[in-house]
Design a binder for these strands. Sequence first.
DNA 1: GGCCCTTTGAAGAGG
DNA 2: CCTCTTCAAAGGGCC
Length: 568
Amino acid sequence: MPQLNGGGGDDLGANDEMISFKDEGEQEEKISENVSAERDLDDLKSSLVNESENNSSSSDSEQAERRPQPRPDLDSYEKTRDYFSEAFRRQQDGGFFKSPHYPGYPIFMIPDLTNPYLSNGALSPSARTYLQMKWPLLDVPGAAGLKDSRSPTPGHLSNKVPVVQHAHHVHPLTPLITYSNEHFSPGTPPSHLSPEILDPKTGIPRTPHPSELSPYYPLSPGAVGQIPHPLGWLGCVVFVVSSLVSSRFSPHMMPHHPHGMHQTGIPHPAIVSPAIKQEPNTHDHMSPSMHSKSPGPVKKEEDKKPHIKKPLNAFMLYMKEMRAKVVAECTLKESAAINQILGRRWHSLSREEQAKYYELARKERQLHSQLYPGWSARDNYGKRKKRKRDNKPDSTPEAILTKPPPFVSPDFSISNKKQCVQYLPSEKMCDSPASSHGSMLDSPATPSAALASPAAPAATHSEQAQPLSLTTKPEGRLHHHFLTGKPSGSASSSSSSSSSSSSSHPSISIPIGTSGSHSTPILPRPIPFSSLHHSMLSPPSPFHQAALHSHHALFQSQPLSLVTKLSD
DNA sequence: GGCCCTTTGAAGAGG
DNA sequence: CCTCTTCAAAGGGCC
């Protein structure tokens, strides 16, 4: 494989770090996490004006972030196992994985191991790399040691488990298990499983396992069931990964499995459904099964080619990870509302925190490009039935022009079905002392965030300016750009995104009094993300981690000052 | 049943 | 080069 590079370094996970993570994260995480969660709720409730972001988790997450050091030795393997065992034990004790963002990353992501982007599930040559990159922590020794594992709970693995129901069981990391597997249909759960819960949708027995946590969890029940492991689901995961990795997945060597399933029965998340349009030339890179399978005569291309999804961007990754949390914390269930909250949270994230996601996203894209060299975002164009928004539903072209953001005022003929306003109230329901932040005064972005990037606060501010509206994106963008390294000013991409949003809310979205109007580029030419990443993202050493901790603590200690300042 | 809504970010298309 | 559009996830709501 070509490069995969640097990341390459991340091939195998460093167990050391995992351990450290475990140590540090455990108690602290739970506590901080809860606290942070509450805070978030409060924030959300308080008209989405967030301020004290739960950075606590961030600190943890940072530690866990990425550990690139390759450590393919048995020793590490043992450690990994221990880690899993511990985790599992804890989980059974009732402790739920409330972990930081990434600690579980390696573990939960596994399901997606099947080649992330190959439709048939056969691992492409680069799959391994992908895995390694994605789950650097996973030490994937030969499958050997894991085969004995037994999985007690595959049943719940059905992909569509209502998040809400088990929200508290959801591991924050699960979201990182990117790519949903809608296409994936759970099979019948193994009889040996001890189903305690039936999945509402699938009717498949589930157990309150952490694994169930993930609605995103791609492992098919059937597949899992075949994987026995004393450690339970963890074992399963490990097994799967190891098997996947251990076996040499050469597209040519791999026997293909029907329905885009990997031999393990794990579908690739990135691939939605074979029927959809697909990339024109990428087939070469596709696994053999793609070609061979479905003899669909005429429409082979279309039918056969699985839909290769776009790689998730940083925010999407963040959403996946945090959605469950938000849902659990709030009464809100509507994704639109949740997304608004997530959007705010996103902006409130510190640079470091966002950087993690940007980095992840970058790797995703990189990997995706490697796996599907010929793929282009354009391939997916037109997939969606309709073009939504754009000019909306108003149906009347004119309306479009001035289409006010829903929240603006009910008076403005808001044709939107839902309005932001509706969401807000509900958010408040989430509870939390409304007073918490007192009003929408502005809750600046997290102190850390503020500190991290001046722009961030501004964003918050603007948002506050428009209490109801969630539309403001300008500052956030700036912040974002800084991270991504894209020019923020009229930043093309940023503008694009903002424009897109603006398109939806053309008339508005004008940052009110935003200090950082979006035109002001905070950083003309942001630092190359990569460099940034290196400097701040990967905390390889404990020392670094410690530094981060203190860093956060510092910020947290003086949140208000920043806030007021920003508001001005 | 299928699209809408909502978020941010990335990338393609078009001017 | 810049702007606009589309898609990515998610799931309740709406038609």
